[in-house]
């Protein structure tokens, strides 16, 4: 096909003219530049956020004062409501992480170990379908399941039991979050389980270990990096989540993200909201660093690196 050849030759010549061979060493950086610039937009935005957090709101004009002050951070420390919300957020995140890992681990294990192709396919589809459906739609589904006239209550009344107020309480939020995090956790644990040779388990079992012992002493330790990676991702995503607590909690069980949102849009104090954002970023990073220091970086540490 001479036409394609000529076309390719032209492009080749064009590229050679625009990017001479002696620049070849910098090609990697040229490839990287667009991504660095895009993330740069976010970094500049964060810079603005930090700057905002250092200015107090002038209540007369509803604008941020020009001089620098730490008033917003002092407000965070002095108002007990922020402590309460933060405590609820951290407690909720610990609960969600625990329950999610407990459910995700057997799912990932069965997914990897099953020998029946259609079972594997069905488990994969069950996993990916909600993964591709956004939080708002899934929260809406839970509203129908748990609502006053919802599925659970019609089952209860059908059995002659009194209807329950399930929505707008802490457990509903936890449950919604677990469902949201489950696909992430399973996908992060799966590679760790794939890496365990099945012979290891057989060896343990043929030596007479009952399966819980095999799990405890063989499978869990070998899957540990995957569990740590999944746990950290689930914890940080939960700790910063907005939609589930907002929709399923109905304003009664706000998480920290709701407090940030309210500072910006309800009490119109961007300085305070920015300070709370900085607190959330710092706290999240500290917790992740602490987990990595205690338990090792897990699978996240080597992500993308060549081994």
């Amino acid at each position: 096909m001479p036409l394609t050849w000529r076309f390719l030759d032209t492009i080749e010549a064009l590229v050679a003219a625009l990017w001479p061979a002696r620049w070849r060493g910098a090609t990697g950086w040229a490839f990287l530049m667009p991504a660095l610039l895009l993330v740069g937009v976010l970094v500049i935005g964060l810079g603005y956020m930090l700057e905002y957090s250092l200015h107090e709101l002038n209540l007369a004009t509803y604008r941020l004062r020009d001089e620098y002050a730490l008033t917003n951070y002092a407000t965070f420390l002095n108002r007990p409501v922020y402590g309460t919300v933060l405590w609820r957020t951290v407690l909720g995140s610990v609960l969600v992480t625990g329950i999610t890992l407990l459910l995700a681990f057997p799912y990932a294990y069965v997914l990897v170990r099953t020998r029946v192709p259609w079972v594997r396919k069905a488990l994969l589809v069950t996993l990916f379908l909600p993964f591709f459906i956004g939080q708002v739609v899934r929260a809406y589904g839970w509203l129908i399941v748990l609502g006053r006239e919802g599925l659970v209550n019609s089952l209860l009344t059908g059995l002659g039991l009194p209807a329950q107020d399930l929505l707008f309480h802490f457990p509903a939020v936890i449950f919604g979050l677990v469902q949201y995090m489950l696909p992430f956790a399973i996908l992060l644990i799966v590679p760790a389980i794939t890496a365990i040779p099945e012979d290891m388990e057989r060896a343990s079992e043929s030596l007479g270990a009952p399966w819980p012992a095999t799990f405890r002493h063989v499978v869990l330790p070998m899957a540990w990096p995957g569990l740590i990676g999944a746990g950290v991702v689930v914890f940080t995503l939960t700790m910063t989540d907005f939609a589930m607590p907002e929709i399923l909690g109905g304003g009664t069980t706000d998480f920290f993200a709701s407090a940030i949102y309210d500072s910006f849009f309800q009490i119109s104090n961007p300085g305070l909201g920015a300070a709370l954002s900085m607190v959330l970023v710092t706290l999240g990073s500290l917790i992740v660093a602490a987990v990595f220091a205690l338990a090792g970086p897990g699978t996240l540490g080597i992500r993308g690196a060549r081994t």
Binding site: L42, L46, M239, I260, S277, G284
Partner: peptide, 11 residues
């Protein structure tokens, strides 16, 4: 790694 609320508000 930056929380979505913070990224969204920054932008």
């Amino acid at each position: 790694t930056i929380p979505l609320v913070v990224s969204g508000l920054s932008m």
